[in-house]
Write a protein that binds this DNA or RNA. Structure first.
Length: 506
RNA sequence: GCGGGUGUAGCUUAGUGGUAAAGCUCCAGCCUUCCAAGCUGGCUAUGAGGGUUCGAUUCCCUUCACCCGCUCCA
């Protein structure tokens, strides 16, 4: 992993954000090649979803014909009420307390401290208990710690009371053996705040979106009313999302600012399963088509207890996971396909008071569509692409090369005159000018040919076209293929066609 | 968030309480007819802040970033 991070920096894929100030935890910048790679992945996803979506599954009206998906680019900042409706504000903003000994976590406002001075007023001992416990269990717990009074004899103080927080070293946690293992309560809201307007008081508070999905639900009615779509259909969006992660880790895998590629598929509740299976299949195919090896991919159904608030009911969530170097031999999430039921539309309808039900024009049935959501991490995808491509090869000068699928490679080809003399640069420049209109190509004239091949290997350029004396004589160039280092000669006038044929992924 | 570790140039490594050294990379020039060759020249570093000291990259404190393990990931 260290080598991958180093290569990313050395060759201009990914830099630490604010590098010259020592970096900033959880943020990364995409360099000249990184942005090309990310854009390529983004464009392939967009193509596979919006421009050229798959044919529908068997057992639906869509069998054999393309499904309907339209694009969207919604604002990062929305009305804060939207995040209350979605459950992002209320659901995860409570003060939490950790127990360093047992590693358990409690809501601070659910804890109550029981104390009994035991005849020694100088040194009260507090026993924190979950307020919701049955009295019987409280007595049992207190007894276990050596306190056998009636419950009424104890002083009962809310845990969040300053007198308790100032004496945490004397508090025994609900499951701890000794006092002093509980931490100060901490706010755990993962949403970034900001303030709208130059004066910025609390009443002007707003949030940066923690997922792109909500922008789609907020525009569901607008799209239905304007775009001649009929359920089932999808709305796709790619964009940045922000989460104040407690602990960003593993390069760009978990960062605080990241990019998502999400599509919300609206369908009749009865068809949810068909579409869930369909999208799961399609999305798996996508990742394989652009170069991830199947043995590095895994499909995993979420357990009931790890489901998000929106997916508790319904068919649950299935992840497409990739074996990243830092998770290996285990896997890390790359994309989740969730059945969000009608949670979001129902919530927004209730909070906004705007009717979001759908009237099927054929059956005249009115219903709240269910949502199947394939939600992929664009930046995680980039990381998967880079780690998959990273190949050690002691038999070549660079010692390593990036085995990108040609469709993903930041540079599709390099045009290299064998020497900087004679006709070589002239022909090379002419070829470069022809190709650059259609392909991301490099022209590199300086230094010896071996160095230039090595450089292209390290940035994953799949093809190098070299101009030599024979080119001058018979108008052919050599093509060097990155992975095999093999060369063949093709006509100068066939280069564009050669590239077009070889860089197609989907 | 907890525990442990690491911070000298883009990389790999030297070294010192008193002008920070080298190889590779990179850039420029020369040379070069297929895989980082050679020659000449050049850019670039003690993570940041504070303290002790005449003087700190070196000693002390704080902080930041990264790595490993746990935790977390609505």
């Amino acid at each position: 992993m260290k080598d991958i991070v180093a290569l990313c920096k050395r060759r201009g894929f990914i830099f630490a954000a604010s590098d010259i100030y020592g970096g900033i935890n959880g943020f990364w910048d995409y360099g000249p090649l990184g942005v090309e790679l990310k854009n390529n992945l983004r464009d392939l996803w967009w193509k596979s979803m919006v421009l050229c979506p798959p044919l529908g599954p068997k057992g639906t009206a869509y069998e054999g014909q393309p499904v309907d998906i339209v694009g969207l680019d919604s604002s990062i900042i929305q009305n804060p009420k939207a995040w209350e409706a979605s459950g992002h504000v209320g659901g995860f903003s409570d003060p939490m307390v950790d127990d360093r000994e047992t590693k358990l976590r409690y809501r601070a406002d659910h804890l109550v401290a029981y104390s009994w001075n035991k005849g020694n007023a100088e040194k009260p001992v507090y026993i924190a208990l979950q307020d919701g416990m049955e009295d019987e269990d409280k007595i049992k717990r207190l007894k276990k710690l050596g306190f056998s009074q009636e419950l009424s004899e104890y002083t009962r103080t809310p845990f969040t009371d300053p007198s308790i927080l100032a004496n945490l070293d004397k508090v025994i946690g609900p499951d701890a053996k000794e006092a002093g293992t509980l931490t100060e309560p901490k706010q755990f809201n993962l949403m970034f705040h900001t303030f709208i307007g130059a004066t910025g008081g609390e009443e002007n508070k707003a949030y940066l979106r923690p997922e792109t999905a909500q922008g789609i639900f907020l525009n569901f009615k607008n799209v239905v009313d304007s775009s001649r779509v009929r359920v089932p259909f999808g709305i796709a969006q790619i964009g940045k999302a922000f989460r104040n992660e407690v602990n960003p880790r593993n390069f760009i895998f978990r960062s605080r600012e990241f990019e998502q590629m999400e599509m919300e598929w609206f369908c009749h509740p009865d068809e949810a399963k068909i579409w869930r299976d369909f999208w799961f299949e399609e999305r798996s195919k996508f990742w394989k088509a652009i170069g991830l090896r199947s043995d590095n991919l895994r499909m995993r159904q979420h357990d009931q207890d790890e489901l998000s608030h929106y997916a508790k009911a319904g068919l649950g969530t299935a992840d497409i996971e990739y074996r990243f170097p830092f998770t290996a031999p285990d896997f890390g999430e790359l994309e989740g396909i969730a059945h969000r039921c009608d949670f979001d539309l129902t919530q927004h309808q209730a909070h906004s008071k705007v009717k979001l039900e759908y009237l099927d024009p054929v059956t005249q049935q009115k219903f709240m569509p269910h949502v199947i959501e394939p939600a992929a991490g664009l930046t995680r995808g980039v990381l998967a692409m880079i780690t998959e491509a990273f190949t050690i090869d002691p038999n070549r000068p660079s010692g390593v090369y990036l085995d990108f699928h040609p469709a993903l490679a930041p540079k599709k080809a390099a045009i290299l005159p064998l020497t900087a003399k004679d006709e070589h640069p002239v022909i090379a420049t002419k070829l470069y000018m022809e190709l650059r209109n259609d392909f991301a190509v490099d022209l590199d004239i300086k230094q010896n040919i071996g160095k230039r091949y090595a450089r292209q290997d390290e940035i994953g350029t799949p093809y190098c076209f070299t101009i030599d004396d024979q080119t001058v004589a018979d108008q052919t160039v050599t093509v060097r293929e990155r992975n095999t280092m093999k060369q063949e000669r093709i006509g100068l006038d066939h280069v564009a066609e050669y590239l077009r044929k070889n860089i197609k992924a989907i």
